[in-house]
Every structure is written in structure tokens, then in C-alpha cells.
Design a protein around this nucleic acid. Structure first.
Lengths: 199, 199
DNA sequence: AACATAAAGTTCTCATAAAGTTCTCACTAA
DNA sequence: TTAGTGAGAACTTTATGAGAACTTTATGTT
């Protein structure tokens, strides 16, 4: 989290770069945020760097502050080289299917959660997997939801509205059983729209 | 269980964060619940923290109160592809866990395949999933390999070297059985290092 | 290319206001 | 009596600013 002044510095740098096509000097940054010490300006910049908001090259003059824009606009498409059969024999026919991940990675409403536990294992969500969640609070049938219980516990379950006052949380694991909750106790944080596993 | 005042403090913090995008100061919290002592506000916040409803960083100004509604799952950032997480009630352990995808998406040796069939379903790989494959041709124990059979069929299996001349391809599906192949007939295309599912 | 010099970046100490923390005392209601 | 609540003083730490002293870069001259 940035402090107010750090934010001021950050915004100044962005604007300066847009306007001049190059990065400001330290004393320009200082003046830009209404102080006189370039040492202080430098301290803010170091802080922004440790917050991974900008990058810079040590001792390099001017252009030395470089915004790390990579993380905001990288297009993510992965070409599929073909379908693979995880079953019997296969057709190694190349397919033009494209793994479209833009939505998942660029949507502001999305965040990722690391799954702990195996209540959804039969839905193919294992312990340690990452799920991509899109914020929303409606009950959608046959969607996996991220549910907050009693403002304390978060869990991943199928959710079903039983009646006006009760919902049922359904795990995808035969060893576990469904649970009924008063709607007042639960709050839907989002639904799972993607999943990533790193071996 | 929270007391009435604790609940009031909690709700104020949530609303403040939603409205201002940052956490309130202690004196703002105090004013928000109709008292004048920031010491008391602090006491409530400590209480909320011990109830695991929020978290905070000691002595840090403002943004220092951070909601922690997550226990079983953690919010994260996806390195190289922008912040996920952020905002809302799920900003718990920021930066603590990072979903590192650079390797998967930037490595020249990697490609993606779409899975057809369910021979690996017990390993959590479902029909329709994408697997990220890293090219390599060695037999690695307990790794899922992409195997080309008779220069025709590609399949996803665990692979085990039986002896000099034979390997065994082992599916992760009780309904299917392992198959033995002459090493001359198979060629390892790569191993699965990641997996993506889009709902 | 080597050198000299100015200018930019870096590091540091000192200082102060404001925010967070801890504490004691006090009141009220179950 | 005890738990919940409130006020506020005293203390600790952070956020911020100034500026001196140092290191490195940029650039012009020889």
C-alpha cells in the first residue's frame, strides 16, 4: 500500500513521462511534489521500487525511472498445438483452438486464490491448485462459488438456494457432506472461472 | 463472536475501504462509531484481529488495517501479469504467495495442449483442460508425460521404465489399465509442468 | 583515449508532526 | 462482580522534509 506522498510521486512520474517522453530528474520530482530535497525524492522512488510499482537503473541520469508497464498490458494467448487424447488412441491433428486467457488476467474483477483442502477434488480442483475467481454475489447453479461464512471462513463449494432463508453448500467429494446455512451467515465472494496448476 | 461495538467497527472499516480505497485512521474509526478516543478504537481493532476478522501492520499509518476474511485460501498476485487480488474483502496475505507463471508463459520450450478424454482424471486432469508441456525426452518418475506412440498417437500418461526394452504407460483412471510398449515405439515429447482450465 | 568537471544519483543524519500503541481510571448494566 | 464500553495521557513508530557528503554518470577538452 502506498502512502499519500508516494502516490503523488508515482503520478508525477507517469504524467512527466507522458508529456516529455522521458523520465524526470530527482530535483524535478522534488519540485513536482512540492518539496526541495532531491534526497527525499530519491527515498520515495526507492520506496516505489520496493513496492514494485516502478523500476530504475542505478545512477543512470534521467530516463532512469522506468515504469514497469509489463504487468498491466501483456496479451496472453497460448496457441494450442493440437488436441491430445488422454484416453485411447488419438488423432494428433493440429487444432486451431486457442487458449484464451485475456479475460482471466486482465479483468479487474478477477483475483486468484490458492486452494487448501480437497473438498472439490471430484471437480478436478486439487489441494494446492490456484483458482481464478470473478467477483460477484449471485447464486449461479452448477458454478463453483467462493463463499464467506460468518465473516471468517472462506470455502469453495457448489451452492444451491433451498428456500428464502437457507442455502446448501455442496462439496465435490464423496467423503464430505453438504451443509445447510442460514443466508445471513454466508456471503458469496465470487465464482470460479478458471484454474491453474503448476507442477 | 463479536460484540455489538466490534461489529460496528468492522462494518465501518469495510465501508470506508470500499469508499476510499484505503483504510481509515484510528481517529476516523473512532469518529465513525461515535466515540472520541483513538485508544478505544485501537482496542476494538486489536480485538477484531484476535478474532481473525482483520489483520493489520503494526504502527503503519492508514492502509494499515487490512481485512482478512480468508483462511483456507489465499489471495495472490500473478507475477508478470498484473495484480489480481486487490480491493474488496479478500486482501489478506498480500505478496505472501505468488503464482509464478513466467516460466510457463515465456519459456520457449513450452507449449500447450488441449486434453481430450479422461485417462488422467484421477490426477485432476479433465477432458477439455489445457496442459502446459515442457519439451524434453527423459523418463521422469511421477511426472506426467506427453508420449507419442508409433509416430501417430499422442497421449498423456505416467511413464515407467520396466527394463531396457519396455516402458509402461500408466493412466490415472481406475477404469483403464496400464499398457506396455517397446521403447522403439514411443517417444517422449515432454512433461506436464502446468495446467489450465477455463470454466 | 585520457582527463577534468559539472551534474545527477545515492546515502546519510537530523528534525518534527502525526499516527499507532499502551496504559490507567471510570462508568454502566447484566 | 464482571464484561463492555469510553476518555485521555504518555509513549513508540512512522511519514515526511531538509540538506550535507559521497559515488557515478555525462560530456567537453586535450
Amino acid at each position: 500500500m502506498l502512502t499519500e506522498k508516494e502516490n503523488q510521486v508515482y503520478n508525477f512520474i507517469i504524467k512527466y513521462q507522458e508529456k516529455h517522453g522521458k523520465s524526470p530528474l530527482l530535483r524535478e520530482v522534488a519540485k513536482g511534489i512540492g518539496i526541495s530535497s532531491k534526497g527525499v525524492a530519491h527515498r520515495y522512488i526507492k520506496s516505489l521500487e520496493s513496492n514494485k510499482v516502478i523500476k530504475k537503473k542505478t545512477y543512470k541520469h534521467r530516463g532512469l525511472l522506468e515504469i514497469n508497464k509489463i504487468e498491466y498490458v501483456k496479451p496472453i494467448k497460448i496457441k494450442g498445438f493440437g488436441k491430445i487424447a488422454a484416453g485411447g488412441p488419438i488423432e494428433a491433428v493440429p487444432d486451431k483452438d486457442i487458449l484464451e486467457l485475456d479475460h482471466i488476467f486482465s479483468n479487474e474483477k478477477c483475483y486468484a486464490l490458492k486452494v487448501q483442502g480437497d473438498s472439490m477434488i471430484e471437480a478436478g480442483i486439487n489441494n494446492g491448485d490456484w483458482v481464478i475467481v470473478e467477483k460477484q454475489n449471485k447464486i449461479l447453479k452448477s458454478k463453483i462459488a467462493v463463499i464467506l461464512i460468518d465473516n471468517q471462513d472462506v470455502t469453495l463449494k457448489y451452492i444451491k438456494q433451498l428456500n428464502k432463508n437457507y442455502v446448501e453448500l455442496i462439496p465435490a467429494n464423496k467423503k464430505l457432506s453438504s451443509t445447510k446455512y442460514d443466508v445471513g451467515r454466508i456471503s458469496i465472494q465470487g465464482i470460479v472461472i478458471g484454474q491453474i496448476r503448476v507442477y
